[in-house]
């Protein structure tokens, strides 16, 4: 690490913090804090993208960074906070697996993720190839969070965190996808959030709660 340039060290720090935030999300039960953590993840992504843009002189990464800043740091968290206020869901109930157990599984997942990313990192020629494992870990941890949470809003935060991981993966493996694809993905995410907003109010109207155990009535032999 001694002769790694300072910007690369910063990038690696960003990657490490991203992973840390994923773990923080796993253990967080307050929905408001979850959204804040998600926004922080977005901010880190934005910083990482900017650093990479500066280092590689790749103009389209600046656009990506701006997109991340607008969408993931401001717009989506704002929408989520608004939803939380209007629906008054502040706490998630006890997850399916207790926090300590989830953390242990999370650790195993990180090991697995690095194993999975090994062949990709070996082939990558980008400066950030060591971060690919972290991106995979963030994706899988978000997946774990979606599985273990009961409240619809926490699952959505997990979903968005997964998207963050995907974005980070694309960035560290190939310096980002082509611009048009990135725009399309961003648009899809935004529309997904709007659809979800509508959807939550429908669930709320019907069940008077956002707890997903209400949504477990459809069985094979209904």
């Amino acid at each position: 690490m001694g002769n790694t340039p300072i910007d690369m060290q910063l990038l690696n720090a960003c990657a490490a913090l991203l992973l840390l935030l994923s773990f923080a999300m796993l253990s967080q039960r307050r929905v408001v804090s979850l959204v804040n953590l998600l926004a922080m993840q977005g901010a880190l992504l934005c910083i990482a993208t900017l650093l990479l843009a500066w280092r590689t002189g790749n103009n389209h990464l600046y656009f990506s960074a701006a997109l991340t800043l607008g969408l993931k740091v401001f717009l989506l968290p704002w929408l989520l906070h608004r939803l939380i206020r209007r629906l008054q869901v502040y706490w998630d109930t006890e997850p399916m697996l207790n926090i300590a157990g989830t953390m242990l599984v999370g650790l195993l997942i990180v090991v697995f993720a690095f194993g999975l990313a090994q062949p990709i990192s070996a082939l990558a020629s980008t400066a950030t190839r060591s971060a690919i494992g972290i991106a995979v870990a963030v994706i899988l941890l978000a997946f774990l969070m979606m599985i273990t949470r009961r409240k619809a809003l926490s699952q959505v935060v997990g979903f968005l965190s997964m998207e963050n991981g995907l974005f980070f993966g694309a960035m560290s493996a190939t310096y980002g996808m082509p611009m048009v694809v990135e725009l399309g993905v961003a648009l899809d995410i935004l529309v997904a959030m709007l659809v979800l907003g509508v959807f939550f109010f429908q669930i709320r109207e019907q069940f008077d709660s956002l707890d997903l155990h209400h949504l477990e009535r459809l069985r094979e032999d209904k």
Binding site: I139, F143, M146, A152, Q155, F159, M162, E163, L166, A192, V195, L196, F199, Q202, I203, Q206, F207, L212, H214, L215, E216, R217, L218, K222
Partner: peptide
Amino acid sequence: TAASLEAGWKYFILCGVGIA
């Protein structure tokens, strides 16, 4: 209806995760 909301949620989240 309750059943349709459940179906919609399942559709959204499973296909969302899948497509991710």
